[in-house]
Amino acid sequence: MNDTDSQAVRWNGPAGNAWADSQALIDELFRPIERLLVEHVPPGHVLDVGCGTGSTTVAAVQRLGTAGRATGIDISAPMLAAARARADRAGVAGQTGFVEADAQDHAFDAGTFDTVMSRFGVMFFADFVRAFTNLRRSGTPGAGLRMIVWRDIADNPYMEVAETAARPLLQDMPVRDPHAPGQFALSDPEVVDRILRDSGWTGIGVDPVDLVCTLPESELVGYFTRFGPVGLALTDTDAETRARVIDVVRPAFDPFVDGADVRFTAACWLVTARASDR
């Protein structure tokens, strides 16, 4: 199975279902990141790459009002179903569209989008230069790129608490490869710069941002048992092992617990660029 196929299986299975089922929790968790992403999106047609359940897609349209429309693209059918329902509830279905496809290879109409944006949706491509070249061609001349990706995992200790604590009990859990498509694949700013230049983007900026994210402590167990490497590993484990993992992992998060909340700093890159006309 190649990288593209494995991502499709993942996001149309347990991972995609977890995001769709927990969209309200994830929306609030990443609200500061969503605000940063959409606050400077100019009027026009926006492409939201890896749009997931559509929170950022709808947020962009709501910010732009009648001056904007947005298209979300994702490979996850369950997440896109949630996105379409969200747009309906928000009363912006007429200004939004959603496409189930891989943005790396999808045949976009050239010169369609004024802005290409993404919140954590561009780190999973099998071929980054091919993907960002395709996205550039989808844009109008000088189209803007605005995306948020994770910095290094060392800058995001919260993200490895669960797997570090659970690994002695889940020894078959895969070890992260920071260079493979995945959460931290674009954590090196030099790599990001090179990919975008090779893909025909100019005026590239890769700026660090640190945003405080919060979730209710009462949701913490549900969070780490459904998301990330531990969540995936627990999909096929027995009830006894699951209970032991919870007993071990929950205390490991204590440094991040503040009363009724769990707080962590999301260390990210805000990446901006412009499409060249080549």
Rank of each mutant, 00 (worst) to 15 (best):
D247V: 07
S276H: 15
R84I: 12
A154Q: 15
F132T: 10
D114S: 08
Q104I: 01
L145W: 04
E34V: 15
D247S: 13
V49Y: 11
P229I: 03
T265S: 10
A166Y: 01
F132K: 12
A185W: 02
A90F: 10
C51G: 07
D247L: 08
R130F: 07
L47W: 04
R136P: 01
V175F: 05
P255W: 09
V58G: 07
D207M: 09
N17K: 11
W269Y: 13
M173R: 04
D258A: 13
A107I: 00
M159G: 03
D5Y: 08
L29D: 01
A126L: 06
W11T: 08
D261R: 08
A82N: 04
V212F: 02
I153V: 15
V209N: 02
T214G: 00
P174N: 08
V257H: 04
P178R: 11
R274G: 15
G111F: 01
F256L: 02
G50S: 04
A59Y: 06
W269A: 10
E28Q: 09
E219C: 08
A162P: 00
P32Y: 03
G54R: 00
V209T: 03
P229R: 07
A143Q: 04
R176Q: 06
V249L: 00
R146Y: 11
T164M: 08
A110E: 07
D5M: 12
G65P: 06
G259Q: 06
I246L: 06
D261V: 14
A273I: 06
L270Y: 12
M123S: 10
A103H: 03
Q7W: 02
A180T: 01
R151M: 02
G50W: 00
F124T: 09
R197K: 15
P208H: 09
F264N: 09
V116P: 01
G205T: 02
S22D: 14
V116Q: 05
D109P: 05
I195Y: 15
A110F: 03
D105Q: 08
S199G: 12
A233S: 11
R31G: 03
N12E: 10
P43T: 07
G111H: 01
V245C: 07
P42L: 05
P168C: 00
S138P: 02
N134E: 07
A103Y: 02
D27H: 03
G200I: 03
A85F: 07
V129Y: 07
D207T: 14
R242K: 14
R31H: 08
L25N: 10
R146M: 13
Q171L: 05
D207W: 05
D27G: 00
T140V: 15
E217P: 01
S76K: 11
R151F: 02
L80C: 09
A267G: 11
D277V: 15
P14W: 13
A107K: 00
I33E: 05
A266M: 14
R31E: 10
H45K: 11
T202R: 13
G94V: 15
F224V: 09
A8T: 12
A77C: 05
I26M: 13
R130G: 05
V41R: 00
A143S: 12
R84Q: 15
D188R: 03
V122W: 04
F120Q: 12
R194P: 04
P157R: 11
D210R: 10
A85R: 14
E190Q: 07
R86Y: 10
